[in-house]
């Protein structure tokens, strides 16, 4: 229930975004740098996933390792 309380405002935000239009401040033709593979958080695919597993089995922390992906809107 606690996490539902956290997630609900996000959902409302998502629903409301349909009501207004926000113009992108970085135009599609300005996204060359963002589209460069060196700007990808996950350019190493399963090699990145392996490192997360390696750390997780030796450290107490877990979760939020990345992989939410997307974001640059370059494709």
């Amino acid at each position: 229930m606690k996490y539902l309380k956290i997630l609900l405002p996000w959902m409302l935000l998502l629903a409301m975004t349909g009501c207004g239009e926000i113009k992108p401040w970085v135009k599609p033709y300005e996204r060359d740098n963002l589209a460069d593979p060196i700007m990808s958080f996950g350019r190493l695919g399963i090699a990145n996933a392996y490192m997360h597993h390696m750390y997780q089995s030796r450290e107490g922390a877990r979760g939020a390792e990345g992989g939410s992906g997307g974001g640059c809107g370059c494709n």
């Binding site: 956290i6 970085v26 300005e30 939020a64 390792e65 939410s68 992906g69």
Partner: peptide, 20 residues
Amino acid sequence: YRLGLSQVLTKNALVNLDFE
């Protein structure tokens, strides 16, 4: 339970915020 936000800030910068 995962929630993530990825945001382009400028034509040279982007950020990710992840919660799990």
